[in-house]
Write a protein that binds this DNA or RNA. Sequence first.
DNA 1: ATGTAATACATCGTATCACGAAGTATTACA
DNA 2: TGTAATACTTCGTGATACGATGTATTACAT
Lengths: 105, 105
Amino acid sequence: MDTQLKRGLLEICVLATIKNEDSYGYKIIKDMKPYIELSESTLYTILKRLETTKMLTVQSVEHNGRLRKYYHITKAGLQRIEDFKSEWKEVIAVYQFVIKEDEHD
Amino acid sequence: MDTQLKRGLLEICVLATIKNEDSYGYKIIKDMKPYIELSESTLYTILKRLETTKMLTVQSVEHNGRLRKYYHITKAGLQRIEDFKSEWKEVIAVYQFVIKEDEHD
DNA sequence: ATGTAATACATCGTATCACGAAGTATTACA
DNA sequence: TGTAATACTTCGTGATACGATGTATTACAT
C-alpha cells in the first residue's frame, strides 16, 4: 500500500490489533500483516508514540526466560478508535468525490 | 480532518478536481473545500510535485491582465486516479478490521 | 481617497512520520 | 555448526503538510 495512504491507518490499526487482547511487538506485526504491512522500526516508533500519548500502557512480562513487552490499550486509546470511526465519514465523502464520473454534457 | 489521514487523499483529490476541467490554484482550493481543506502553501507544493511527476501540465493564461496558471491532467494523472481506486479495496479491508467488534466469548 | 477583502502565486523553515539499515540477544532446528 | 525465527532498539534520511511571510492586482465599501 502507498506510504502516504498508510499514514492515517497504521496507528489506528495497531490500536485495533491490541484492542481485544494485550499483545507484543513481534505478534502485532504478524497479526497486522494480512491487512497492512509495516517494518519493526516503524512499529516500535508507533508503539513509543502511542505510549507517550497515553493511548496504551506497557508491561514487561517474562516469557521463556526473556522479557516481552506487552501493550494494553487505554480508555483514550479506545476513544481514539471511536474518533477514527467518526472521521471516516469525511474520508468516504472525499472518496466519492474522487471516483465521481464525468458528467458528460 | 487529521493531517495524517489527509496525506493519502490530498494529491488524488487535486487530480480529481481538475479531471473534468482545467483549473488554477485559487479555484482548486475553493472547489476542494467542501471535501477537504488545504492551505495555499500545501496546494502549490502538491501542484509542483504533480507537475514534476508528469501527472499534469501547466499553461499560463492571461486573465484580466494577470497571468493565471491553468493545470491540465495527463494520461498518467488519470491512471493515478484508477490506481487509487484499486488501492481503495485494501483501505476498506483495513477499516473493516479496525471497526470489527469484539467477539465476546 | 483610503482602507480592506478577495484574488493569485511563491518561498522558506519546521515538525511529523515511515522506513531501511544495522545492532544485540536468545531459542529452535537442520 | 549454521541458519532461521523470535524480540526489541537506535540512527539517519526522505517525504510532505503547513504556518508564516511576501508580492501584486482588482473590487468594493467608507
